[in-house]
């Protein structure tokens, strides 16, 4: 786990730097999902950085596409998928790193996303293809807790369950905040676990900022047969940078120079 902590630290640091350099981006929901992405890409998923298009690889769909900085920083840690130089061109006109992930521009991105609510359907399609081809790859889909207010998510939840997609693992980044405020106040999607349970999912509640908890959940998900799994991951929006933590205002705002320095300093102090 020590190594994973170091990787998560690098990802968090790079997210803050990317968004600072671009003067735009979404730090809150990127930072909340870092630990999930770290365990996925460095422990759970079969992904070969030498061959990112391998047809037998596990797939990942970032349905909450605005957390793109977290995905890019994670792919940069997976050596070779994104160079450090490219990483800090994030959101610039000449960069392949679009504001929201573009699968045609970045090897390692399995699906273009950005318009919320669409990723779970796509992940279902990938999981169905695996079943048709008798392949054993798994498909992971990360959604925001605000995102599941979109109706298409529940259409897709029906499908995953109807077609018994046990090779699908949905993950909800439950940081409790969306742009306009607390999810329970803007448009209450809770109880999230009960909803997925009633749709036929194997539901696992975890602390989504705890690496052991996350890995245990993926282990359980792999063992569940005949139904899809939903991991409801309680997280802290802005995790790792205290002044961003639990603040809806940091959903889509870049830090200024002073805030950037303070954020990096804090992240570094925690690593020691």
């Amino acid at each position: 786990m020590k190594d994973l902590e170091k990787i998560a630290f690098n990802i968090r640091k790079n997210i803050v730097k990317m968004i600072y350099k671009a003067s735009s981006g979404h730090p809150g929901g990127a930072l909340s999902s870092v630990d999930l992405l770290t365990v996925l890409y460095f422990s759970e998923m079969k992904v070969d950085s030498e061959n990112p298009q391998d047809e037998n690889r596990d797939r990942f769909v970032l349905s909450k596409g605005h957390a793109s900085a977290a995905l890019y920083a994670t792919l940069a840690e997976k050596k070779g998928l994104i160079t450090q130089e490219n990483l800090f061109g994030f959101r610039n006109i000449n960069s392949p790193l679009q504001g929201h992930p573009d699968m045609k521009k970045v090897p390692g991105v399995d699906m273009s996303t950005g318009s919320l609510g669409q990723g779970l359907s796509v992940a279902n399609g990938m999981a169905l293809a695996a079943k048709l081809d008798n392949k054993d790859y798994r498909v992971y889909c990360l959604m925001g807790d605000g995102e599941i207010e979109e109706g298409q998510i529940w259409e897709a939840a029906m499908t995953a369950s109807h077609y018994k997609l046990d090779n699908l693992c949905a993950i909800i980044d439950y940081n409790n905040l969306q742009i306009d405020g607390k999810i329970t106040e803007v448009m209450n999607p809770t109880p999230i676990d009960e909803k997925f349970k009633s749709f036929g999912f194997n539901v696992i509640n975890i602390n989504g900022n705890d690496m052991d908890d996350i890995q245990n959940a993926f282990d359980k998900a792999r063992k569940a047969k005949g139904r899809p799994t939903a991991i409801v991951a309680k997280t802290v929006k802005g995790k790792g940078v205290s002044f961003m933590e639990g603040q809806a205002s940091w959903h889509g705002k870049a830090p200024n120079e002073e805030e950037y320095k303070a954020a990096i300093e804090e992240l570094e102090s925690k690593l020691k």
């Binding site: 796509v122 399609g125 298409q152 259409e155 029906m158 109807h162």
Partner: peptide
């Protein structure tokens, strides 16, 4: 089922896998 948006998304996912 009566879920066209999901149908299009599922088709998209299937196509990424050949």
């Amino acid at each position: 089922g009566i879920a066209e948006q999901d149908m299009i998304g599922t088709a998209a996912g299937l196509s990424t896998c050949g």
